[in-house]
Design a protein around this nucleic acid. Structure first.
Lengths: 210, 210
DNA sequence: GTGACGATGTATCGGGCCGATACATCGGGG
DNA sequence: CCCCGATGTATCGGCCCGATACATCGTCAC
């Protein structure tokens, strides 16, 4: 479950959170990639991350618990924060690319944290993804060219729609790659960010919408 | 696992097959929807379908085993064929729509077998899918409008790309719905197809590529 | 001929992730 | 005062995947 783990560590690096909150943040951050994460996945994963030592319970005794005196005692919320080992783990997962980095889920999560990655890694990931999508595109073209008469009109329409999506994604990736190469995108380079998220606007020169 | 079950029954309805072959057909039929299906999924599923009575082993003693005398004795291939109950099951699954019919996987499989569905069901599914994609689209728009300053440029770019894909799919669905309503698409209506796939070209007036 | 190799073919196992479900608390409106 | 919707944590069965193992077939080189 490398992908959800990466996402959780990435979000907890910005601030400690409890499960429910984490799920909401996860959904706004990754909403473009995947459907809402299930609690049946989230809670067991949090427990695993804790037992692995990447996160710990923050005990609810932090800032706001003292600022707001417990008129209404907060219920049994479990607030998690990332540990020093967890930060290392996050950096490792973010930089280590494997085959699973290029499928839909893996690529999406890595991309969502590109602001914490150096340019070389970003380029490697973008190019790997492009390669993978191109392969998929070729597969669909083959079917359309070679097996068309065996398939009904609806199935063919589905293939065309899928092919279209592949071509579009390849074009999108090309733009992003060109953008990275041209130096318009931020180069973080060093040991990255320590604790807090980069100031808003620090990476704002990326877009370039047609 | 309703979706893979539906796909397997649909393909076995066209002709008996063994696992390896089935996987290839599955991939050409559903290649636009999902990655190659894993054997770790396929074989256990086949066993389950058999124990449920939807398919049986065809024993390899059919047509080609006699036409081609066993110069080279076929290895232990297990050929499956669909049963009468399996055909009923297929029709039921194809017509019964639930929430899971509208997610990516469910919609894709149903769409791939639209040639075996009546027009009313097709419309219901297309409209349900459209509704679901529209909701997803609204969610992304909300994030882009309300949480934009909290997110970095890469995350925002991801949201925009996802939003774009949603808008495109909604437009695609609109076209398909209009096509169905206009009567240009085939209306199968009755108890559908018996054994063999519909003659090629029988549903050919669908496309309408711009 | 024979040995190596790639395609064909069946099968299992551990684990991630999901949907359904259960249950408890909080705040506000009727 | 009570109900209800949002908040919040948790478990369970089950689908599906990737890795792995293993056996056979056809063929091409040597």
């Amino acid at each position: 479950m490398t992908m959800l783990e990466l996402a959780i560590l990435g979000l907890l690096q910005e601030s400690p959170m409890h499960g429910y909150e984490l799920r909401k943040e996860l959904n706004t951050k990754l909403g473009a990639i995947r459907a809402a994460i299930s609690y049946g996945t989230l809670y067991p994963t949090l427990r695993r991350l804790q037992s692995d030592g990447w996160i710990t319970e923050a005990g609810e005794t932090s800032a706001d618990a003292e600022e707001i005196p417990p008129l209404t005692t907060r219920r049994g919320r479990v607030v998690y924060k990332i540990t020093a080992e967890g930060k290392e783990r996050f950096a490792d997962l973010l930089a280590k690319v494997g085959p699973e980095t290029y499928d839909d889920a893996g690529f999406g999560v890595h991309f969502a944290f590109f602001a914490r990655t150096d340019r070389a890694t970003r380029l490697r990931i973008l190019e790997g993804r492009r390669r993978k999508v191109e392969e998929r595109r070729e597969g669909l073209r083959d079917v359309l060219a070679r097996a068309a008469e065996r398939l009904d009109a609806y199935t063919l329409e589905l293939q065309r729609h899928g092919l279209d999506a592949c071509e579009r994604e390849v074009r999108w990736l090309e733009e992003l790659i060109a953008n990275e190469r041209s130096g318009r995108a931020p180069d973080i380079g060093g040991p990255q960010v320590e604790d807090s998220p980069p100031p808003p606007g620090s990476a704002r020169e990326l877009p370039e919408r047609p």
